[in-house]
């Protein structure tokens, strides 16, 4: 089936088999390998991407369901030629990643959260990212990093 979507602000068309998940389509057909698969049953959150502003698990969504949607992956958060955004800067500063495998899902989840709720406090951040498993960090640095990045999202929102 032919589908259309906007991926990281670029419109595109792609031919997909009906049973292909959005995650596999992104990774293997569209080359966006920053989206990672760690459980393929919606528990771990590593494959989280942003579809029409919402954080969704791309392993639980079929590619055909993304027809007409705006999709943002981790690659779309900070294009190659741009400096790190506030989330990436804070993640690096706080050592909020080790092996990097859950990181894409943490960033997309956090971006969706802070875009909607830049004032999210530690407790709110913890409860939202409790849907993403990280095996390396113990989460404290991730929560601190997201909280710190919130300041930039607040400033952006006020400007808008």
């Amino acid at each position: 089936m032919q589908i259309r979507m906007t991926l990281n602000r670029e419109p595109l068309e792609v031919e997909v088999m009906p049973r292909v998940t959005l995650a596999d389509c992104l990774r293997h057909q569209l080359g966006k390998t920053g989206t990672h698969l760690a459980c393929e049953h919606g528990v771990c959150g590593a494959c989280t991407v942003i579809v029409n502003g919402q954080a969704v698990r791309s392993c639980l969504m079929l590619a055909v369901q993304a027809n007409g949607a705006e999709v943002v992956t981790v690659e779309g958060l900070t294009p190659d030629d741009e400096e790190f955004g506030p989330l990436q800067q804070a993640f690096r500063k706080h050592n909020a990643l080790q092996c990097g495998f859950c990181t894409s899902g943490m960033l997309t989840t956090a971006h969706a959260l802070l875009t909607a709720e830049p004032d999210a406090d530690h407790e709110r951040i913890r409860s939202v990212i409790a849907g993403n498993i990280c095996r390396c960090t113990g989460y404290l640095s991730i929560v601190d990093a997201i909280h710190e990045a919130g300041e930039s999202y607040r400033a952006n929102k006020e400007r808008a």
């Binding site: 390998t33 920053g34 989206t35 981790v74 190659d80 690096r92 990097g100 495998f101 894409s104 960033l107």
Partner: peptide, 11 residues
């Protein structure tokens, strides 16, 4: 981190 935070790791 420079590659991981851009989704450019090579797993």
């Amino acid at each position: 981190d420079l590659r991981f935070l851009r989704g450019k790791g090579n797993y």
